[in-house]
Structures are given as structure tokens and as C-alpha cells.
């Protein structure tokens, strides 16, 4: 869908700025500089305003990120359920470092998603997986990347 088409789903009112940015992000996977310009013109606000909002929220990407975004919850509850071990295993198995991002994948910590009872929780491209172990996490990531990885 073109950005314009996504935007036309919203009335150009202030309260629709964030929902529209989210919709563009969902549609294209990220919010590019070009998209920021279009959103700004549509709502009649500055590009700086739109970019400021887009870059503020965790759920919106202002960079064209990796094919697979791996997020591990490290809030206290998941931490007591060995979240750190999962990060360490993923790091060593896929030879990446937490915080790094290459074209294939990026690995980062995320905040609580309220599924503490089913922890530890990880997210792969936004989909939540619960009761994760190191082995389960590695398997899931392999499935996302294609099994030969």
C-alpha cells in the first residue's frame, strides 16, 4: 500500500497522528524520511514533530532494521526466570552481540509485556513467545531465518 493510501484511512486530526505513524510503520516495516515528510504534510505539522514522535516510541522503527528483530524481556520477573541465559545462548549460537544489528538480525532487551506468569518472554518481529528456554529460542529463530541457518 502506498503511504498516501494508509494516511487516507485517518482524519487529519491531532489525535490520529500517532495511530497513522503506527499504521505506516506496520505497513512498511519502518518509517522512512520520505514517509515522515508525507505524514507531516498530511497532518499539517512539521517534519521534526513527526520524526520526534516516531523516534520516541519503542514500537516504531525509524531505521530500516534487520530482517529479524529478536527481543528478550529482561524485566525483574523474567530475569529471575533466566532471561540473561537466553541472551547469552543466542549471542553465542548466532555469533551476534546484544545491541548489534546487521542485515540478518538484531538482538536487544525489551521492557515488560505483562506476560510474567509465562516468562521468560521473547519477541520475534513483534510476535510474543512465552515459556522460552535457550534451546526453544534458538529453534524459533532458526525457523524464522530458514532451517539451514
Amino acid at each position: 500500500m502506498t503511504i498516501q493510501k494508509v494516511l487516507l484511512r485517518y482524519e487529519p486530526e491531532k489525535k490520529n497522528i500517532l495511530p497513522a505513524i503506527k499504521a505506516v510503520n506496520e505497513d512498511s516495516g519502518w518509517v522512512s524520511e520520505e514517509a515522515v515528510g508525507k505524514i507531516a504534510r498530511y497532518f499539517g505539522v512539521s517534519e521534526a514533530h513527526v520524526f520526534g514522535v516516531a523516534s520516541f516510541y519503542d514500537e516504531i522503527n525509524t531505521k530500516n532494521l534487520a530482517q529479524l528483530i529478536i527481543e528478550v524481556c529482561d524485566s525483574a520477573n523474567c530475569q529471575t526466570k533466566n532471561a540473561d541465559k537466553i541472551i547469552k545462548s543466542v549471542e553465542s549460537f548466532f555469533r551476534i552481540k546484544e545491541g548489534d544489528s546487521n542485515r540478518k538480525f538484531s538482538l536487544k532487551r525489551m521492557s515488560c509485556v505483562g506476560r510474567c506468569l509465562e516468562g521468560p518472554v521473547i519477541r520475534l518481529n513483534g510476535t510474543i513467545y512465552t515459556k522460552t528456554t535457550s534451546d526453544k529460542a534458538i529453534k524459533l529463530i532458526q525457523e524464522y531465518l530458514g532451517l539451514d541457518y
Partner: peptide
């Protein structure tokens, strides 16, 4: 209904209001 976009601070009422107004949730 209005969906947030991932920011703990938006639970604070004045930040939540900013967020609803299409601003950074400060």
C-alpha cells in the same frame, strides 16, 4: 480506543495526554 506505541512513561497522566495529542509521550 487508542493504542499506545510502547512507552512506560505514557502511564503517567500528563505524558499519556501528550501521546493522545500526537506528541512525544513526555
Amino acid at each position: 480506543i487508542f493504542y499506545g506505541a510502547g512507552a512506560y512513561i505514557c502511564g503517567e497522566e500528563s505524558a499519556l495526554i501528550n501521546s493522545l495529542e500526537g506528541k512525544r509521550g513526555e
